[in-house]
Amino acid sequence: MSVSDVEEAQKKSTRTRPERMQALATLPVFFKLAGKRAIVAGGSEPALWKAELMAATGAHVEVYAETFVDGFDALASAPPGGSVKLNKRAWSPADLEGAAIAIGASDDNEDAAAFAAAARTAGVPVNVVDRPAFCDFQFGAIVNRSPLVLAISTDGAAPVLAQTIRSLVEALLPDGLKRWVEAAKLWRTRGGQLGATAAAKRRFWNRFVDLAIDEAEREPREADFDALVRAPDKSPPSVAIVTVGESADTLTLRALRVLRTADRIFFDDDVPASVLDFARREAQRFAIGPDANGDANGGTTGAVDRIVDAARNGERVVCLIAGSSGRVEASCNALSRALHNAGLDMPEITFAPRLASDAS
């Protein structure tokens, strides 16, 4: 091996920083509207849906229209949250003063433009239904497991696609998860009991996630909190070997789960960059060479040693190996021997690429 080969191997084996975030068509944000004024201009079906949505957040919704479709009276008498007040008249610029959010639902471009201009003059974020040119923000397709809430956006390009994706996500998220998120809100207030350091707290929440996913259909109990707190501060050694196909689409849900909770990620040259996007930004990433056996010929001196050290320290380690490389079996065997020699009696977990028939 030449000097240049050694230098290149050492360069690849060093820790790499996460890629900078790619461009976003829109910024996903979540407004806290409880107790605040929300203005809705219009009495149509789209206005009715937006008024109900605003009320569900706890906002005090004021709706302005000369006529209202069926459903508004029922919404005003029994809103899902907050309050809904119907004003049987056209909106005026003064109505927007002091509002937290403004939504217009008008078929008239002139009225839509005037509403958007008045909202901006009042310093209120504005959305005009089906009028992207007049919008400061857009609504996405919503997956409601409140307080777990997901929003999906195509930047207005394909709303039907966003709704289809929402249906797919809803099928993957048990409704019971919302109970675990509610428990998490309560348990987060007990910060002193979760661990003495940031790393210990993160391990608590990693254990919480494992339990919440595995037991999503049942009610969380106080005994669950006690068990999570009493668990050893250092997690048992964890090394997952994930075999990656040609793209991130080949990852199984179980593989995504361990990748999202990894503290350290070792990946070879042939792993698509898109796969690393699923990791936590805080996770340390280490590029390794053609295999993971750590000898000079492989160009990854010390890679296995670092993996073993991380596992011994209770960190969650994921090794990403391209399935097309033909090195999966050799890498698994090398790691297995090293873990055994280090006295870490644990099986490595291997996830194969997802096949078309793999429903997981």
Rank of each mutant, 00 (worst) to 15 (best):
M1T: 04
L27D: 12
V29F: 11
F31C: 07
K32R: 09
A38G: 15
I39D: 14
G43P: 03
L48C: 06
Y64S: 02
V69N: 08
F72G: 04
P80N: 13
V84R: 06
V84G: 09
S92Q: 10
S92P: 00
D95H: 05
L96I: 02
G98E: 15
G98R: 11
D108A: 02
G123K: 08
G123M: 08
G123A: 12
V129F: 04
R131S: 07
F134E: 15
G140S: 13
T154E: 07
T154W: 02
A157F: 08
L161P: 03
Q163P: 00
E170W: 00
P174K: 14
D175Y: 06
W180N: 05
W180P: 00
A183E: 09
Q193N: 05
L194D: 13
A216F: 03
P220T: 11
P220N: 13
D226E: 14
V229N: 12
S235C: 06
P237G: 10
V239K: 11
G245E: 11
S247L: 08
L251Q: 07
L259T: 07
R260T: 00
I265M: 04
V271S: 07
A287G: 15
D291T: 03
G294L: 02
T300M: 09
G302N: 11
A303R: 01
R306D: 05
R316F: 02
S325K: 06
V328L: 11
A334W: 03
R337K: 06
M346H: 08
P347K: 15
T350F: 14
S357N: 10
